[in-house]
């Protein structure tokens, strides 16, 4: 499974997103390379093994949070 397929699972069209981004790239040619890089990210693998690994660490992280032991990261998706 890749990111695009994962988006499709919850009813979000990755194809529409890619089309929208390409339309932006046509209007703003300076962003063309960036847009293509971002579209390529949609095809990055998001394997079941990765998801299982995430689920496995959640209880440990929840316990650490409840103990006040915070370990922040920077996730650009948190701003969405």
């Amino acid at each position: 499974m890749n990111v695009a397929e994962f988006l499709k699972l919850i009813g979000f069209s990755a194809e529409a997103l890619a089309d929208f981004l390409r339309a932006i790239a046509i209007k703003v040619p300076e962003l063309a390379t960036t847009v293509e890089e971002w579209i390529a990210k949609l095809n990055e693998p998001l394997t079941a093994e990765n998801l299982a690994a995430v689920l496995a660490v959640l209880p440990t992280e929840l316990l650490a949070i409840l103990r006040g032991q915070l370990e922040p990261r920077q996730h650009p998706s948190d701003g969405a």
Binding site: V54, L58, E61, A64, L70, E71, P72, H75, D78
Partner: peptide
């Protein structure tokens, strides 16, 4: 946003 752990925000 509040990033509380590597995965949880």
């Amino acid at each position: 946003s509040a990033s509380l752990s590597p995965h949880i925000s």
